[in-house]
Amino acid sequence: MELQKIFVPAVIALMFLVGAAVADTGTINMPETQGLTTGTTIQALGTVTETDGLVWTLDTDQLPPDLPLMREIIYTTSYSEDTIADQGLVTYTKSAALDTGPMVAGQYNFKTAKVVEFVGLDTGRMITSEDEVIDGAMGYMPNADEVFICPFLSLPESYIPTFCNIEQMGSTADLTIGSLATTTDERHVAKSGDPGVAMDYSVKLTGFGDIPAMGSATAFINVHIQEARTLGDDEGEFLKAEDLVYGETTTAAGEITLFQKVMGFDSKVTGALPTELTG
């Protein structure tokens, strides 16, 4: 295949950062911890595929000593990648690491880093997608068989209000030529509720020298936050006080000199935590 040099004056560079200080407590780890790491390096002329999937759910039940209600905190995090590069010159490098233990600031429970370069031959094509999600909720159960997670109950004001939050980030690309780099990280298991819940995602697509990437690329973020607040009398009513929905999708198609998007979410309790909630 003969590659022609094409100069494109337009540059697409997009960056987004969102943060929130809300009562997303995170959760405590199990008595034991697990960890895994993987590393992949491929150089090939032909076909390369990569399929990754992670689903991790952590359910924490606690009975505060002065409240006859069981508190339940449930977090589910998921990650997936599907890549197929066919009929082309492919270089693929990726690392992934999972640690279920409690994290401090600057540390994460799960993270990945990927770089894939593709030069299609004739009808060569690469299609790749990546998606990460954190879904966290806290509720109280009056009875062992009756759990209230997203509905909001009346509770004494010394207890953290319930919440129901979900965040999603990711990207897709359909290319005949290009160099794509992505990173992901997430944290929802922390020591004593600090430094809270965090998720980040970045994607960068370029060409090679003066030759732009060719095809299409999309990156997105979706956030839905539901938080309660203490209202009313001495006993306090933990009624839903906040409902925040945000969505953003960015797409570029054609000859792409640069496509870059950086996204982040941060959520933690900013006031003092009652000792029975710190784990």
Rank of each mutant, 00 (worst) to 15 (best):
M138F: 02
T123V: 10
Q226D: 10
C150Q: 15
F238C: 05
N222Y: 00
G139T: 02
K268Q: 13
Q107M: 05
L231H: 13
I149M: 15
A190L: 07
P9C: 00
E242T: 09
V116G: 02
E227A: 09
T172F: 10
G279T: 05
G271K: 13
A105K: 06
T93A: 12
A44K: 05
T112P: 01
A241M: 15
S171P: 01
T33L: 08
T57K: 06
G236Y: 01
C150M: 12
C164H: 15
E237R: 14
K268P: 04
E242D: 14
F220A: 08
D194R: 13
M126G: 01
T33V: 03
F265G: 05
E146S: 13
E255S: 13
G215V: 12
N165L: 03
S80A: 07
A137Y: 09
S192E: 14
T47Y: 09
D266E: 11
I160S: 08
S80T: 07
Y246P: 02
S78P: 00
G46P: 01
A190T: 11
S216Q: 11
H224S: 12
P65Y: 08
S179R: 15
M30F: 12
D185W: 01
E72G: 15
L155N: 00
Q168Y: 09
V269R: 09
L3H: 09
E242I: 14
S80F: 07
V119C: 04
G247N: 10
L98R: 02
M138I: 03
G106P: 00
V18D: 11
P151Q: 01
V11M: 07
F208S: 02
T57V: 14
T123F: 07
T257Y: 01
P9E: 02
M70A: 04
E81D: 06
G120P: 06
